[in-house]
Nucleic acid binder design. Structure first.
Lengths: 241, 241
DNA sequence: TTTAAAAAGTGATTTATGTCACAGTTTATC
DNA sequence: GATAAACTGTGACATAAATCACTTTTTAAA
C-alpha cells in the first residue's frame, strides 16, 4: 500500500488531448478530399506508396506495424483533429506502417503533390507545417526514450501516463481511462507479451497504483507511474499516444 | 562457424553516408552564421531553449540524453552535411537532449525566427525542409522499432548495421567500421550495460559474424546481423546513426 | 618507456521477461 | 440466456539481461 496522497498538481497537470491539436493547419482543409471511412477499414498498408497525409475530422485511427516475425507494434492512436501520414523525400518511399479506422470516421486526404504546391504558395502554412513536423518528431523521440530505457515496467508506466493524457477523465483523485484496452494490446505498444503486461498490471493493482472499473483502467497514483519511467514531465502535447 | 558466404549484394547495398545528405537546403546557407567549434564543446544542453537549427559544414557532433537516473542515451552521431536541432512549436520548448562536438567543427547556426521568415518567403525551401523533416522522422521511427522489438541482441545488430552505413568501408568481403567505439558507448545507444554488449559481441566473434582490427569493428556477415534484427532493408538514408 | 588510468573480459549470481500450458472469466452472438 | 470465442490470470520453467566483483588488456600520460 502506498502512503503518498495523490498530488493535486498531478491531477491538474494532465488533460485529455483527444480531439485536441496543438497545430493550426486551416489552409490544407481546402485541398483535402473528405472520405467517410467505415470502422475497421485500412487507409493504407505497409509497403503502399507514401505520398499522402491524412487528417481526422471525425473518428479514430490506429497505426500499426507488423514485424516480419509476426509481432504487431502499435505506433499511435490518433483522433479528431490529428493529422498523420508519411511522405517521401529523396526517393519514392513506401509506408513503414499500416493505418486503419477504429470507428466510422471522416478522413481528409491530402496528396503530397497538392501539399507541396500549397507549401510553395503559402508561407504561413509552411511555418505551421514545420511546427506540426516538430511536434511529431518530439512525440516519436519521447516514445523512443520511454520504451528503451527503463525496462518493460517503465515502458508500461509511460504508456499508462500517455493513456491518461489522451483518454483520461478526472474521477475524484484518480484518472479514469475512457478506453478499453486489452492486455495484449498494451503489450503491442511496448514490445512485451500479454502475460508480462498482465503481471505488471497485477503488481500495480496490489500496490493500489491502479485499479479497474467497467473494463477500463483507473489510475490512482500517477506519481508512482512517473517514478517508474523516470518521467521528465514533458508537455501533454508530446506525452500522448 | 557460419557457412553462408557474404552476399555480394549485401556488400554493395550499404554505402558510407558520412558526409552525405539526402536533402538540399542551399537557401538556408545564406542565413546561417558559421561558428568554429572546438572538439568537446557543447552546442546546447538539455533544457536550453530549443530555437535553432545546426548545420555541420565540417566535423562531427554527438547528440546525447542523460536520464534522471544517470544513464546516458546516445541519440545520434551526425557528420558533414547533416542538419539537426529541435524547434519549438505550440509553445517555447526546451531541448530534450544535448549536443557536443567530437572533432573541431564548423557549425552553421540558424535561428528559428530566421528560418520561419525564409520558409515564408521561399516555397522551394519549404518543400525541401518538409523532405528533411520527413527523413528525420523516419530515422527516429526506424530506431524505435529496432531498439524495442528484438531484444538487446536485435538492438545491437541494428546499431552495427547503422554503423556500417554511416562509417563503413569495404574491406574484401567485409565492412570495416572506420570509427572506434567503446563497448559502453554501444550500450548507451541501445540501453544496455557494457557487460551485456561485451558478451553479445563475444558471441558474434565466436560465430565469425564480426571481428576486430586496430580497435575497430569489422563486419563479416552483415546478413547474420540483419537476421538478428529482422531487418526490413530500409534505405541507407534511413538506416544510419 | 614506464606508469597510471581506462577499458575489456569474464564468472557467479540475481532479476526481468518470455514461453508454455491450462483454468477461470468476460464478451459477443445467435 | 446459452454457447462459443476471446481474453485474463497464473504457475512452472527457460532465457535474457543486469549487477557485482575481480583480472587482464589497452590506452594515454608523465
Amino acid at each position: 500500500m502506498r502512503t503518498s496522497a495523490v498530488n493535486r498538481s498531478d491531477i491538474n497537470h494532465y488533460q485529455n488531448t483527444a480531439g485536441y491539436s496543438a497545430y493550426n493547419l486551416d489552409a490544407i482543409k481546402d485541398i483535402m478530399y473528405m472520405h467517410p471511412i467505415e470502422r475497421g477499414h485500412f487507409l493504407f498498408l505497409e509497403d503502399d506508396p507514401a505520398d499522402k497525409l491524412f487528417f481526422i475530422r471525425e473518428g479514430k485511427v490506429k497505426l500499426t506495424k507488423t514485424t516480419t516475425d509476426g509481432k504487431e507494434h502499435i505506433l499511435s492512436l490518433f483522433g479528431k483533429g490529428d493529422m498523420f501520414g508519411e511522405l517521401s523525400s529523396f526517393q519514392e518511399l513506401a509506408h513503414s506502417y499500416s493505418a486503419y479506422t477504429l470507428e466510422d470516421s471522416q478522413i481528409g486526404i491530402i496528396q503530397q503533390k497538392d501539399m507541396e504546391i500549397l507549401l510553395w504558395q503559402h508561407g504561413d502554412l509552411a511555418i505551421e507545417f514545420m511546427h506540426w513536423n516538430t511536434l511529431m518528431e518530439r512525440i516519436t523521440k519521447s516514445k523512443l526514450r520511454d520504451l528503451t530505457f527503463h525496462g518493460k515496467s517503465g515502458a508500461l508506466a509511460s504508456t499508462l501516463i500517455r493513456l491518461c493524457n489522451s483518454y483520461g477523465a478526472p474521477d475524484g483523485n484518480s484518472i479514469f481511462i475512457q478506453k478499453r484496452i486489452k492486455n495484449g494490446e498494451l503489450g503491442d505498444f511496448i514490445g512485451a507479451t500479454r502475460e508480462s503486461v498482465n503481471r505488471l498490471l497485477s503488481d500495480m493493482k496490489k500496490q493500489e497504483i491502479i485499479s479497474q472499473r467497467d473494463g477500463c483502467l483507473v489510475i490512482h497514483e500517477i506519481s508512482a507511474l512517473k517514478a517508474m519511467c523516470y518521467c521528465e514531465e514533458c508537455p501533454v502535447e508530446i506525452c500522448r499516444m
